[in-house]
Design a protein around this nucleic acid. Structure first.
Lengths: 341, 341
DNA sequence: GAAATCTACGAAATCCCTTTCGGCAAGTTA
DNA sequence: TAACTTGCCGAAAGGGATTTCGTAGATTTC
């Protein structure tokens, strides 16, 4: 086995220097492509480094540089499906540079979060992204941290922080405008838990869209859980109470799938007789329904990338501003609102 | 704003020592609860540390200790839903200790993976967990790494590595045994892509279970995609070709949901007339179907925790062995196999 | 041929912390 | 009172890398 097995500590710069017969300083310069090193010497050093499979110790480097090239990602709840695309986007943006990501899942527990925060600070991360599990404001980590912080998905409750959240209002409006463009006028709304800002914002957007067209919702918006069960039940009630609705804007894809099921059971044909639009564009749900589900996509991966970019900027000393910024959403049209062939 | 704002570098031990009027050595001892420090002195130091919100620099500590207290999590594809529970389990196990996790997503690209591996090594992680996206063997990272490596979900193709994968064979067998216990005898199998080891292993387990009961599958196992669409189509073909099947073992919950849809369309009542069992226990699918879906749960979170534990052991110098180890799976009974009230 | 100018390299400081070991003062014992 | 503990603290080394600055030798210039 090579010199590199478990137990034998990794090679250091001084090992390389010794093998190449030069000083540590020269070895460092050779490896980092600094000037003032003769070509022959540089080659000798590089050969030695290669032979020992030398990997510079990032910690030692960080100690000196005052930057670690690491970023903390503090999430509240990994299970939540909104985390993952954001996390991917961020990891993506960072991975392209030379930055590595510390992942910390606080499990929605404030104590754990403090604990993780402390750990991140002791690791001297260069920045922190806080990812929440809903679009409702969450407590700020505070203003007196030695590193820049960006809040993604869930905004901070302190306007002095920078927060990036998807634009639920625009999403609600976009959904309704699409239904209107499809010629629908009798539009109802089934959504989830009314205590979620997401539910309220999407509803407000939808109402604004209708109002602009001189219309209003059919019946009251129906609130309950973000589940297929509720989608089925609500749609059944709705279609019985208002048989003349020609479109349902659902607050989530799960609810929309439930609504599709009920429509099918009741013999309502989608999209001819009834259009259904969901929210989130959760592909495992939206692309597997009959018909496939038109939905609003929050571009979470882009959001994650944007958050990472902001942290980058802040690290570079750029002022990244503050307040809650809404990132644009996108309509994904499938067969549940327009007949396709 | 306090002394701690962005830009002003974090307080160091020598800042604390100066403020407390002691030497750096004494400050260190006081903070780390070492002996040989007078009570009054210790208090003075702690007060100073608090005032400066001093956080020890983990890098400097790691440089000295030879361990960093970090672990790398090298995934192939964050999108895959199997990653997340494993990642949660691992993060959970580590988070309980004082270990932090570097998350690296290679996006299934070998180049990116090498790149990330190099970064992890330069950060001197104490161990690495490699999480694959399928249960098929993946290329080993090699034997000459200076840190212990554990493979989770996707095993390494090198038997000298330690791999932990869910026991698909046992899962297939468990599914069939449950159906048999429910009194079913004419059991068919619809599954996904035949090139997946998961598909083959589950099938083999199912066949073994049937054989032990002196039975065999109704018709050939049906292979195609892991989607609801395929589940619907396959079930339609199956029920037409073999109207007398009384149970379908589906290779994934998605396929099972499709099968449930078709059964409903064809007027077959589940579970009375036809039992359906899925695989993966993906709750968003399994608990939202009509009826709710019995499924096999691979306990991925436990798998993640186990992998983390092995890395712990290896770091502590324990020999963790090698080869592919299968972790137990679990049956989750819901309404699609047994009528419940 | 002496002085000025480069070139290539190395010694040493620095980053922040832990740990060992030596020293000083006070208290204890013979 | 001399000899010893004991308790408390600080000086300094060490860990791995970068960077500044000084210097020896080679080269150029007049």
């Amino acid at each position: 086995m090579t010199s590199n097995e478990i137990g034998s500590r990794a090679a250091t710069l001084s090992d390389v220097a010794r093998l190449a017969g030069v000083s540590i300083a020269t070895a460092s310069k050779a490896i980092n492509n600094r000037d003032d090193v003769a070509v022959a010497t540089r080659e000798r050093v590089l050969r030695a480094a290669d032979e020992l499979s030398f990997t510079p110790n990032a910690m030692a480097k960080g100690l000196l540089a005052g930057r670690t090239g690491t970023v903390g990602l503090l999430t509240s709840d990994l299970e939540g499906r909104f985390m993952i695309p954001i996390l991917m986007g961020a990891e993506d943006a960072f991975g392209a540079g030379q930055i590595n990501v510390f992942l910390c899942d606080a499990r929605g527990d404030a104590i754990r979060e403090q604990h993780h925060l402390k750990a991140l600070l002791s690791r001297r991360v260069d920045g922190i992204i806080v990812v929440g599990r809903a679009t409702d404001p969450r407590p700020s980590l505070g203003q007196d941290l030695p590193v820049p912080v960006v809040y993604a998905y869930a905004p901070s409750d302190d306007p002095r922080d920078l927060s990036l959240t998807p634009d639920n209002y625009a999403g609600g409006r976009l959904a309704v405008e699409h239904l209107l463009a499809c010629g629908r006028t009798r539009i109802a709304h089934i959504t989830g838990d009314p205590s979620y800002a997401a539910a309220q914002d999407r509803l407000a957007g939808a109402r604004a869209g209708l109002e602009a067209a001189g219309l209003s919702l059919v019946g009251d918006p129906m609130f309950s859980e973000w589940t297929e069960h509720w989608g089925r039940d609500a749609a059944a009630i709705l279609l019985q109470r208002h048989p003349d609705v020609d479109a349902i804007f659902c607050g989530s894809d799960q609810i929309a799938r439930g609504a599709l099921d009920t429509a099918r059971d009741l013999g309502r044909s989608v999209p001819d007789d009834l259009a259904v639009i969901g929210y989130d564009n959760w592909e495992v749900l939206s692309t597997n329904s009959r018909p496939e589900l038109t939905s609003i996509d929050a571009n979470l991966q882009v959001l994650g990338r944007l958050a990472a970019q902001r942290v980058f900027d802040a690290i570079d000393g750029v002022d990244i501003g503050s307040g809650e910024h809404h990132s644009p959403v996108r309509l994904v049209i499938r067969g549940s609102t327009i007949a396709r062939r």
